[in-house]
C-alpha cells in the first residue's frame, strides 16, 4: 500500500524535475537569444508626435506582423515642397531582422504616381530595437502613400 502511494509520488517528482529542467532550458535559451545582438532603446517622447497620422495595415503574414511592428507613422511637408513620411519599425522578436520595403505615393484622387523613387529598399533592425524608414514623395501632388513591407525568410 505504501509502495503503491510512493511510486506515483516518485513519478510526479521526476515529471516535475523534467518540467523544471525544460522550463529552465527554455528560459536560458530565450535569454541567450535575446542577448545576442539585441539592443536597449531609450527615448524621451511618450506621446505620439504632432505630425503622427493614423494608418491601417492589411496583415497577410501574421508572423511578420507579430515581430515587426509599424509603431508610429509621421507625415510632414519638406522644405522643398513634397511630403515626407517617417515610420518607426520595431522588432519585438528575439532575432536580428532583415526586411525590404517599398513606398508608393498616391495623389488626391487615389491614383498611384509612377516614379523612380518607388523602389524596394532593404533595412535591418536588431532584436528589441527600432529603425526609422522614410521616404519623400516624387512631387508636390502626392498626398498619401502605401507601404509594402516584406520580411526576409533567412
Amino acid at each position: 500500500m505504501i509502495q503503491t502511494t510512493n511510486t506515483p509520488t516518485n513519478h510526479h517528482c521526476a515529471l516535475r524535475a523534467l518540467r523544471v529542467t525544460f522550463a529552465a532550458t527554455f528560459i536560458t535559451a530565450a535569454l541567450l537569444a535575446v542577448g545576442c545582438g539585441s539592443v536597449n532603446t531609450t527615448y524621451t517622447r511618450t506621446t505620439p508626435a504632432d505630425s503622427a497620422v493614423s494608418a491601417q495595415t492589411r496583415v497577410n503574414d501574421l508572423f511578420q506582423e507579430f515581430f515587426l511592428t509599424a509603431k508610429e507613422v509621421r507625415m510632414n511637408r519638406t522644405k522643398g515642397g513634397p511630403m515626407e513620411v517617417q515610420i518607426d519599425v520595431e522588432n519585438n522578436g528575439f532575432a536580428y531582422k532583415t526586411f525590404s520595403y517599398r513606398f508608393d505615393w498616391v495623389d488626391t484622387a487615389g491614383n498611384v504616381i509612377a516614379s523612380q523613387l518607388s523602389v524596394w529598399k532593404v533595412s535591418n533592425v536588431p532584436s528589441g530595437g527600432s529603425t526609422v524608414i522614410r521616404a519623400v514623395a516624387p512631387s508636390d501632388d502626392a498626398t498619401d502613400f502605401r507601404l509594402q513591407l516584406r520580411q526576409s525568410e533567412s
Binding site: 519638406t78 522644405k79 522643398g80 523612380q116 523602389v119 529598399k121 519623400v136 514623395a137
Partner: peptide, 20 residues
C-alpha cells in the same frame, strides 16, 4: 541593379526634399 535603383531613388528624394 538593386543598388543602382536605391542610389538613384535616394538622390532624387534628396533633390526633392531640399528644393534646390
Amino acid at each position: 541593379m538593386q543598388d543602382i535603383l536605391k542610389a538613384s531613388s535616394g538622390m532624387l528624394e534628396s533633390l526633392a526634399e531640399t528644393g534646390v
